[in-house]
Structures are given as C-alpha cells and as structure tokens.
C-alpha cells in the first residue's frame, strides 16, 4: 500500500491505501480464463425428457394454483417461513417424544451425525437451562435437529439447528458479528433466529 507523510481526511487516506491495489496481469488472466470456461447449461436432448418436464411443470403449476386458491395467505419471506416451521415443530414437540434422550450435546452428537453437521453448543441462557433430548425434524424442507430444553422456570423450550444456506434461509443475523437474533412470533410462539458457524439456529418458546 502507498505511503505518505501528509495529513489528510481519513476518507482520503483510506482511499489512497487501496488506490494502488490491483490484481497482477497474471492473476487477472487466470480469473478471466476461469470465468470464460463457465460450462454452458445442458440442453434437453430427448423428446422424452422434454415431455416429462412438461408433464411435471403442468402438475406443479396445478398444485401451486390449488394451494394458492385454498390458502390465500400472503407470501412470507424466508425468516417468516422459518419461524412458521419452527413454531409448528415446537407445538408438535409437546405431543412427541424425543428420538434420543440426553443431557449433553456430546451425548446427542452421534445420534445426529447423519445430518451431516456437528451440533453446536447454544449460548448460555436461562431459557436453555436443562437439555432433555432431541429429535429429527425439518426447517424449510431441510433436515434439522430439534433439541428439547427446559427453562429455569420448567417451560419447554426447543432449539433447532440446520445447515445454513442463504439462498434458502435468506439473510439472517450472524452471531459471530454480535448481531442480535431475529425475533418473530408465529402461532403465539416466540422464535429467535440467527446463524452461527455455518448453521441456521433457532429457539422457540411459548412463555415470552
């Protein structure tokens, strides 16, 4: 980065720091070659495949229209849909047993290994006072772990962990950046959502 002894406004100084920075000709050529080598999308080559796609599209369109007519609810954004799924899972958990009973994440971990990610310890909170166990569930059709906790007051609190995909889940607060969890209420259930270490994490409780 360039150097100078002149005093100047901070903004100008920062601009100067970056002004001379650029990729080398070789790096640029490599990146452009990479971009130029982008594979073209595959084309349908057989009549059968085209026909199957048409049948599927018509079926999907019919299903969507049927659902829309049956449920004229406004379109929800991804965090709202997460909250809806989490709230449904939370309500259902009152009537369902845990797939695995355990009082530590370490004990639960092997049972959930097929989800393809490591369960993470939640932040310390009086809401998540005592772990009771966990079960499999899904959030936005992505397989997820539901962990059952009791709060210090004895209320059931559920915590969810699933792989985070911004395309699916939308932009969510990042714990690593100190951002406060997103708080949404769905079906009377308070849902807090954030991302942490590559996972989308949510808690659900009925009492706050």
């Amino acid at each position: 980065m360039s150097g100078s002894i002149t005093r100047q406004p901070l903004k100008q100084a920062i601009q100067n720091e970056f002004q001379g920075e650029s990729l080398s000709a070789r790096q640029l050529a490599s990146l452009k070659a990479q971009l130029g080598a982008r594979p073209k999308p595959q084309r349908w080559r057989s009549f059968r495949a085209t026909a199957a796609a048409l049948v599927f599209a018509v079926g999907a369109l019919t299903a969507v229209l049927t659902l829309r007519l049956a449920d004229p609810a406004p379109t929800l954004n991804p965090p709202q849909r997460i909250a809806q799924d989490v709230a449904s899972n939370h309500v259902a958990s009152a009537f369902a047993r845990s797939d695995v009973t355990a009082d530590t994440i370490a004990v639960l971990q092997p049972a959930f290994s097929r989800l393809g990610f490591q369960l993470i310890e939640p932040p310390r909170s009086s809401l998540l006072h005592a772990l009771e166990g966990g079960r499999f569930c899904s959030i936005l059709a992505v397989p997820a772990a539901q962990l059952r906790y009791r709060s210090a007051e004895g209320e059931l609190v559920t915590l969810y962990q699933a792989p985070y995909d911004q395309q699916v889940h939308g932009v969510l607060p990042e714990a690593a950046q100190g951002e406060a969890p997103l708080l949404l209420v769905s079906r009377g259930v308070a849902v807090r959502i954030w991302t942490e270490r590559g996972l989308v994490v949510a808690t659900a409780s009925s009492s706050d």
Binding site: G3, S4, T6, R7, P9, L10, I14, N16, E17
Partner: peptide
Amino acid sequence: LVVDADEAR
C-alpha cells in the same frame, strides 16, 4: 478526522 498514511495503515 485527519490522519497521516501511517495512522490509516
């Protein structure tokens, strides 16, 4: 704020 290049760096 006013700075020199070294402070900015």
